[in-house]
Simulated scan of single mutants.
Amino acid sequence: MDSGAIRRRLALGAAVLAASGALALTATGTAQAATGGCAGREVRTLPFKTGITHVYKRDGYVCAVTVPRTPGSARVMSVSVQARGNRPVVDAGRYTRLAGPVTVHAGHRCVWIKGAVGRSSVSSGWILC
């Protein structure tokens, strides 16, 4: 094999490696965006009139995000997670895409999730006991 063929094969290998790395980064970013930054598996979806609160669980940690049904201009949104016996952890403010993520260590304790977009809200009661 001459040196030109070796260079072409090395260039092809480098291009394939770069493309696969870019694909991996894109796929990871898409998964991250879909979960809103929460790790673990989705265990509950709490829909309400103006949004949805997604609840995830992993290794004793519970995470939640609230997303509006129609993204757009900034509006008041909030999400909170409270493990039984502790104070709630809250993320509230004016957001365009989502409120949260909010993560707490719950262990095997029940949690109470709340989410709101505008004047509409949801409250789970004690769940995941």
Rank of each mutant, 00 (worst) to 15 (best):
M1Y: 04
M1P: 08
M1E: 07
D2T: 12
G4R: 11
G4N: 12
A5S: 10
A5E: 09
A5P: 00
I6S: 00
R7F: 04
R8E: 10
R9D: 04
A11Y: 10
A11T: 13
G13E: 14
A15K: 14
A15E: 09
V16N: 02
L17E: 07
L17R: 14
S20D: 01
S20H: 08
S20W: 08
G21W: 01
G21H: 04
A22R: 12
A24H: 11
A24R: 15
A24M: 10
L25R: 15
T28L: 15
T28I: 14
G29T: 10
G29C: 03
T30Q: 13
A31Q: 11
Q32G: 03
T35N: 11
G37N: 09
A39R: 15
A39T: 12
R41A: 14
R41G: 14
E42I: 12
E42N: 08
L46A: 07
L46M: 07
F48N: 10
K49R: 15
K49S: 12
G51K: 06
H54A: 09
V55E: 05
V55H: 01
R58H: 06
R58T: 07
D59R: 14
D59W: 05
G60Y: 05
Y61R: 08
Y61T: 09
Y61I: 01
C63D: 12
C63S: 12
A64N: 01
V65M: 02
T66H: 01
T66P: 05
T66E: 03
V67I: 13
V67Q: 13
V67W: 00
P68D: 04
P68H: 04
P68Y: 00
T70P: 00
T70G: 01
P71W: 13
P71D: 09
G72H: 02
G72C: 07
A74C: 05
A74S: 15
R75H: 04
R75C: 02
V76E: 13
S80H: 07
Q82V: 09
Q82M: 14
A83C: 11
A83S: 13
G85R: 12
P88V: 11
V90I: 14
D91F: 11
A92C: 05
Y95W: 06
T96P: 01
G100M: 07
T103Y: 00
V104T: 02
H105Q: 14
A106R: 10
G107E: 10
H108K: 15
R109T: 09
R109G: 02
R109M: 02
W112E: 15
K114N: 10
K114W: 04
A116Q: 13
V117K: 03
G118N: 05
G118K: 02
R119D: 11
S121K: 11
V122Q: 07
L128I: 12
C129K: 06
